[in-house]
Design a protein around this nucleic acid. Sequence first.
DNA 1: CACCAGGATCCCT
DNA 2: AGGGATCCTGGTG
Length: 320
Amino acid sequence: MGSPDGEHIGTTAHASFYVSHSHSQTRLAWLDEAEDLKPPRGVLGFSELSWPGVCIPSSDRLFNKGNPLVQRRTEQCAAVTLEQRLPAPCPAQPPLPEMEAQVEERCLEQVQTMVVEEVLKDVSTACKLLNIPPDPLDWSCVQVQKWLLWTEHLYKLPQASTMFQEMCGRDLCFMTEADFKQRSSQFGDTLFAHLDIWRSATAMKRRYETEDSKSAFQETPWLDVTSNYPNQPIQLWQFLRELLLKPHNYSRCIRWLNKEKGIFKIEDSAQVARLWGIRKNRPAMNYDKLSRSIRQYYKKGIIRKPEVSARLIYQFVIPV
DNA sequence: CACCAGGATCCCT
DNA sequence: AGGGATCCTGGTG
């Protein structure tokens, strides 16, 4: 599925990125195909990376019907691309073929920028959620397990994490796809593809960071995947974790039941809602609304109800 | 009654 | 467009 004819824009041990700049015929064919694509979506529903012109090997395998987070990004990309690849015609002066080529060139670059941007954003969000560094090479065994648990949840891969016990990120990165399949014949390829994307994202980020400051990419405020985004508004799950990590102050209203598993109990629902309301400057906040927001996290795989469900008890999908 | 689940809509960024 | 807030209906113990 790769396009080795194109310009090589990045490499990791197992993944490369190519952008075709050579054959306008091919590019048009790809763009036309794109109109028929079913729209996948993030967070880390990465199948959109198989987008025409920007190719990440293995990512197509992540696109399966069971993926709960598959929909959104290509819709955005498709909308912009298709709109922009058809600039308003000028009847008096039909565009020259070179101009068409330039327009296509620009479209392609825009798509590439958007896709790269979205990938980095998704990886960044996941890093923040899992509290792990972006580069898989830097992962400890515990961090590998966190990532596996998350991936397991994301792609509904039962028991995937148990097949990679006591492995650090470096071990994982040196494994081939065959090694992955050997450990899990059913899901090895999906895990491998997902890991591939993370490594690729790191490579992309490095590449753009070291690029000339005049590059269009530099105008995008790249997200530092390890930072906490001081200017970003806090999200509810972050707020809850914040309270939980300060038991000295808040254990009377919210506390861990099982910190290792991420299970917590809201002891004083009204008080937690009040605190959330204060933080967000929403005086009318109450537990009914707060709990509705928590339930939105079920779909996103951030918070869920524990296996043994009980009132006011929730569980972080990825423990702190 | 308090909590839970989830649809619909609005608002803000 | 996406996230969160808000409102709502209906269900459970």
